[in-house]
């Protein structure tokens, strides 16, 4: 019988301790953001999908179409289209296809890139109902940035 009342007492005490903690937290500042109106800035190392780097000297990219990114990719999401053009040494990039639906953002392509022509973008607001929206042409994207 004595156990019955001590149980009630200890139960009430632990309930009150819990309530006092939640009450203290209730008056603290909120830690969340109201997302569509407020958002956090991404860290400089954030790994978004890859993009071609614009070379400030030439105003163009530095890709030499060697295909190392394509070969290093574990998920085969990169396809490079290049052609030989007259008067230009080496191959010229005509299309840099990225299938972002398959990408796992490991960064193998960036590490394999000798001329450092690609980098991670900081884009994270990506949402679509069609998967074609994630098949990027990075060269076109770079030109549109101008």
């Amino acid at each position: 019988m004595a156990g019955y009342f001590t149980n009630i007492l200890s139960g009430t005490k632990s309930l009150l301790v819990g309530l006092s903690i939640t009450q203290k937290e209730f008056f603290k500042k909120p830690v969340t953001l109201q997302y569509p109106w407020e958002s956090l800035e991404m860290t400089p190392r954030y790994r978004g999908h890859i993009q071609l780097i614009k070379d400030p000297e030439t105003g163009s990219h530095k890709c030499i179409s060697c295909g190392m990114c394509q070969r290093g990719c574990p998920s085969n999401c990169i396809t490079i289209h290049s052609e030989k053009q007259e008067g230009v040494k080496g191959k010229v990039l005509v299309k840099y296809e990225l299938d972002f639906t398959k990408c796992s953002l490991c960064g193998q392509c960036i590490e394999n890139c000798k001329p450092s022509a690609i980098e991670f973008s900081k884009e994270y607001n990506l949402a679509s109902t069609r998967k074609e929206d994630f098949h990027y042409d990075l060269l076109k994207r770079l030109k549109e940035q101008k």
Binding site: E25, T43, Y46, R47, S104, L105, C106, F120
Partner: peptide
């Protein structure tokens, strides 16, 4: 309630690791 408190702390770790690794969950 404890879930929300634990997530507040976990969020701090994720922010720290994100600043180093560039990812929040599936680190590489």
């Amino acid at each position: 309630t404890p879930l929300l408190y634990a997530f507040t702390d976990r969020e701090e770790i994720l922010d720290l690791l994100e600043s180093v690794t560039g990812a929040r969950l599936t680190y590489c």
